[in-house]
Write a protein that binds this DNA or RNA. Structure first.
Lengths: 219, 219
DNA sequence: AGTTTATTTCAACGCCTGTTGAATATGGCA
DNA sequence: TGCCATATTCAACAGGCGTTGAAATAAACT
């Protein structure tokens, strides 16, 4: 809400026109400013000029580093966690604790600022205005759903992973985007207690589908 | 995806400049075109010119009828179902069938075009660009969450309603906005089977919260 | 010292936006 | 018939957008 244009940045004499004392961190400052803006306003609600302003920089410099708005979006959205590493660890817990571990991981992940910003930016940008939705869908499927599905040993792994993903998206919406009062005010512990049984159902319990063959999707 | 500008509309001689054979349906045509556009591209991704084009009308006429883009958005978003009437009916079912009835209602609601458009428009527009998010939050809380909470007789009624709402939002996202393959391809019956136990948990089962007093919100 | 090279800013482009005010044609009414 | 109110369009506005190309400055290299 308050972008006065002077964010914390590794100072290196006051910048003017021309090459400064090699300040490579500036690229990262821009990326961080972009992520924050995207998280607050979504892709189409964020302008390069606002990002540049938040980073204390000229709009052209943003494009100099990232080429285009879409590339900047993709760069800002790179996930702060490698799920294909974390998920197998979570699922290796004893059967009685797996669901709660997963629930805990989800909630704690969304408690850390940068993963939360990444998620809200993605969720908020899932609108087909500027080509951002394609990147969002690809990011969600390849970086979250597929690793999770491959680690699962239940039936319908892709479907189970996707259903859990939908609950995560709903959670981000309720707690961080729309800000529904009661959900936004929950403590982490209570939230874990509430969703753990749902995780259990989506990932491990029998689904009770009509027997029309496996609902599998490859690619 | 295909708006050629000539939608079905109660024809009344070809319109030109000036007053035509009193065609009150035109206002509704515009509202419907707006809802479709908002559902496809969200609030900020939709322009008055596109809406006017889809309705086969001049942009000024849109504002003549609705005053401003925000008012048009609010008008387009008026819910096609009065939840404060439907919900008590659903909850009056015998205890063993309530969750499935609710799940069925949700899924079937999202199968009908206009409620689905209303939901996707709301979900897609939950971004603070144009003041639309305020209206979205208010619509969700007053029209869905509050009636549901008032009909519930469990503890933490607002929280339960909000958690169910978050699952609904996630579902809309997965099935209609982002279009996750497996979820989007489910039959209605299978989807009901999958989410019914989750509905049961969120609305009726003990939540297992830390005993820090009731999490109630009034207004 | 002089040349190159990378960083940063400036100025402008064409386009799209929401909104406004005037012009015009028609239907209803006296 | 003549007037008035209303529906509809047209034309323009001021501002924001993403992007581009050139200019300026300073560090790095020879």
């Amino acid at each position: 809400m308050a972008y006065t244009g002077d964010m914390a940045r590794p100072a290196s004499r006051t910048r003017g026109r021309g090459r400064p004392t090699t300040d490579e961190g500036l690229r990262e400052v821009i990326r961080q400013a972009a992520l924050t803006q995207f998280a607050e306003a979504g892709y189409s609600g964020t302008s390069l000029r606002k990002i540049a302003g938040a980073a204390g920089v000229d709009p052209s410099l943003v494009l100099h580093y990232f080429g285009s708005k879409e590339e900047l979006f993709a760069a800002a959205l790179t996930p702060p966690v490698d799920f294909s590493v974390v998920i197998p660890q979570l699922l290796s817990a004893p059967e009685s604790q797996r669901a709660e571990r997963v629930a805990q991981f989800i909630v704690q992940l969304l408690d850390r600022p940068e993963p939360r910003q990444t998620m809200t930016a993605a969720v908020r940008s899932a609108t087909p205005t500027g080509g951002a939705d394609v990147q969002v869908r690809r990011a969600i499927t390849t970086q979250v759903i597929r690793p999770l599905a491959e680690a699962l040993q239940s039936d319908h792994p892709e479907l189970r992973a996707a259903m859990l993903g939908s609950q995560m998206v709903g959670l981000v919406m309720a707690r961080h985007v729309v800000g529904l009062p009661t959900v936004a005010e929950l403590t982490s512990e209570d939230l874990v207690a509430i969703i753990a049984p749902v995780v259990q159902r989506y990932l491990f319990d029998p689904l009770g589908l009509a027997a029309t063959g496996p609902t599998e999707v490859r690619g």
